[in-house]
Every structure is written in structure tokens, then in C-alpha cells.
């Protein structure tokens, strides 16, 4: 599998992958209720409904890289992020952490892997315990894991807060006394307190106002420089991803449809879905333009269309797209796309 992976940009070529996904899938099944079970007993064709949230994804993230993961709701980007973080086991395929299977690690090593990979969540209102003071939220994990002595905890927490741009004198307060942007900073301080080298940001700025969003994005970039962090940045906002990422991965209905260095994706998008997505992003530079809109709805992941998932909405779809799943193939150095049109050309 790893031979098919595209070579990373030259500067990052030497760095080993922190995380490598090989053919990772995740299915969610809705369990049958009583009536359905009864109906099945009586011989009716009732089946469990299965959602293929993530369907055969290969991805590798190298040390020091910022990878942007883009897609619309229901495309599986958050599920993928959770599998990378080790919170959710994959249904098939394997997640390699520094070359070793994340779910085959021994107790101590598994704990290390989880500590060194931290997540920042979308909703700064739901991801902080409302009954804990800020000092407890940030200090609990490093104390438990023995990263800091009891006597040094206070100074340690102060440093974490300062690094995330918060005034340490506020650490005796509760989360509800902070604004959305400040809460997101608390979440960042909490994640960094266990000294991770890899951050997964799941829509970390989506809930914030524009001016606050800019502050948090700048903080992420500053921390990357200072702490040599690696990011998986999950977002539906192409503008944010373009600004931050070295490499961009586009998902549609559980599959990666395109993957390339950021500049390449925005200048030479290959997949029709990527092109449609880029055309629809409202741009502040645009004045009184005519909106057109991609035709059709995002299909239900319960019952995705056969072949290429995008074919019912694709203006270039032909017979083969309805039957055969397109493979992710290299179309330019470091640029992979899953579209049958690339074979025809």
C-alpha cells in the first residue's frame, strides 16, 4: 500500500510519517428495533442499515506538516480525525503511529501515543467541563500522567495559559466566565499541557467570529513554529485551510477524492468535485457575481450511489463512473485524484 503513496514535498521528504492510514474504513450500523427483529424472524427482508462513514482511506502525515482535511457535512472527515486520534478503532485497515499499529500497542506505549496526539474540538462550550476551574482543566492531565510535580503545577499551568494567550490570573474562574474565543484558548492550553507533537483540530475555528477566528489561527501558526507541531486541520472552510495547510485532502462521502500540496489544489484542481467546491466558495474579492450552485443534494451515506460517489452531480459523468469506483491515482508529482476522466485523457 505504501508504495502507492505520493512522495511528499521535497522539504518534508526526510521526515518519517507520524501517522499512516492504510485502507482505513469505519462503518456504523444502526441496530434493529424490536419490530424489525420480529419482521426478520418472519422472513421479511429487513437488514441492518450500515453507514460507510469512511471507506478505504490511505493517508500519511509527516512530522512538521500541516494537512488540511476538507469536505461537506457527512463526508466522514470528523470520523477520520477520531480514528487518527485513536479515539475510535477502524472497522477495517490499520492506523500506524510512527510505523506501528496504533491498536496493537502495549499499555504504556498506547498511553504515550494517546498523549502525544491531542484533539481540539469545534464547540468550545461543550468541550470544557463546566464544573472545573480553568486551572483544573489544564492541570489535571499533566499531573495524572506525571509530567509535572505537585509543587510545580501552578507555575506549569500559568505557562500553558500564557502560551495560549490567556492571562494566568484568570485561572481560578470557570469556563462560563469566558467568551467563545477565550474558551477555545483554554482548550488549546489543555491539549498542549501534555506536551503533544501532533494536534488534530476538528473545525476548531468554525464556531468563532471572524475577528476572533483570525486570532486563533495566528495562535495555531505561532505554536507550530515554537513547538514544532504537526497538524491535521479538519474544516469545511476552504479559505481557512488554504491559509494554513501545506497539503490538502478533499473528502466526499467517505472517500478521499483528491490530495495535493495546498497551492496545487487551489491553482490546478483536478477532481470535478474540488473544482465545484472552489467555484462555490464565496470570496470577498467577488463583486455582484452570479451564483450557480452544484446541481443536486449530497447523497445519503446510508445509500451512496455506485461507482464514483459524485457521478449524479458531476457534469462530466459518463457510463464508467456509474459502475466502477475510480482509484486515487497520481496526476502530477504529489498530486493524486480519483476520477476516471484522468484515464481518458
Amino acid at each position: 500500500m505504501s508504495e502507492t503513496l505520493a512522495p511528499p514535498p521535497p522539504a518534508l521528504q526526510e521526515a518519517p510519517p507520524i501517522i499512516e492510514l492504510r485502507g482505513v474504513s469505519r462503518r456504523f450500523a444502526t441496530s434493529l428495533d424490536f419490530a424489525a427483529k420480529l419482521a426478520r424472524r418472519l422472513g421479511l427482508p429487513v437488514r441492518e442499515e450500515v453507514v460507510h462513514a469512511v471507506d478505504g482511506v490511505d493517508l500519511s502525515i509527516r512530522k512538521g506538516e500541516v494537512v488540511g482535511l476538507v469536505g461537506e457535512s457527512g463526508c466522514g472527515k470528523s470520523t477520520l480525525g477520531r480514528m487518527v486520534a485513536g479515539i475510535l478503532p477502524p472497522s477495517a485497515g490499520s492506523v500506524l503511529w510512527w510505523g506501528r499499529d496504533l491498536h496493537g500497542l502495549s499499555g504504556a506505549e498506547a498511553r504515550q501515543a494517546k498523549l502525544r496526539t491531542q484533539m481540539i474540538f469545534q464547540d468550545p462550550y461543550a468541550s470544557l467541563n463546566p464544573r472545573l476551574k480553568v486551572a483544573e482543566i489544564v492541570g489535571e492531565a499533566p499531573q495524572y500522567h506525571g509530567l509535572v510535580r505537585r509543587g510545580g503545577l501552578d507555575a506549569y499551568v500559568d505557562e500553558q495559559l500564557r502560551r495560549a494567550g490567556l492571562d494566568p490570573t484568570l485561572k481560578r474562574r470557570y469556563p462560563h466566565q469566558f467568551s467563545g474565543g477565550q474558551r477555545q484558548r483554554i482548550g488549546i492550553a489543555r491539549a498542549l499541557a501534555v506536551q503533544p507533537d501532533f494536534l488534530i483540530c476538528d473545525e476548531a475555528v468554525a464556531a468563532l467570529d471572524v475577528s476572533i477566528q483570525a486570532q486563533i489561527l495566528n495562535l495555531f501558526m505561532k505554536l507550530r513554529r515554537e513547538l514544532d507541531l504537526t497538524y491535521l486541520f479538519i474544516s469545511h472552510d476552504l479559505g481557512v485551510v488554504e491559509h494554513l495547510s501545506d497539503r490538502v485532502v478533499i473528502m466526499y462521502l467517505g472517500r478521499v477524492v483528491e490530495e495535493a500540496p495546498a497551492e496545487e489544489v487551489f491553482q490546478r484542481p483536478n477532481h470535478p468535485y474540488t473544482r465545484a467546491l472552489l467555484a462555490e466558495v464565496p470570496r470577498i474579492e467577488a463583486r455582484k457575481r452570479a451564483f450557480s450552485g452544484v446541481k443536486g443534494e449530497i447523497p445519503s451515506p446510508l445509500n451512496p450511489p455506485p461507482g464514483c460517489h459524485f457521478h449524479p452531480r458531476c457534469p462530466h459523468a459518463f457510463e464508467r463512473c456509474r459502475i466502477e469506483r475510480p482509484a486515487l491515482r497520481e496526476v502530477a508529482p504529489g498530486h493524486r485524484s480519483a476520477c476516471h476522466l484522468n484515464d481518458a485523457a
Binding site: 471572524v210 483570525a214 491559509h243 494554513l244 497551492e263 470577498i284
Partner: peptide, 24 residues
Amino acid sequence: VGLIGSVPSRNHRGEPLRQIPGMT
């Protein structure tokens, strides 16, 4: 001016965004 400057696509990739300090 600050609001327009905060929009990521108005900035150069990788450079710090022009942010408005403080909060509402």
C-alpha cells in the same frame, strides 16, 4: 478594515492574519 483583514483569503498563505485585538 480589521474585519476585511481577518478574512484568510485576503492574506498571504502562511503569514499571520491581520487580527483585531481584544473582543467584542
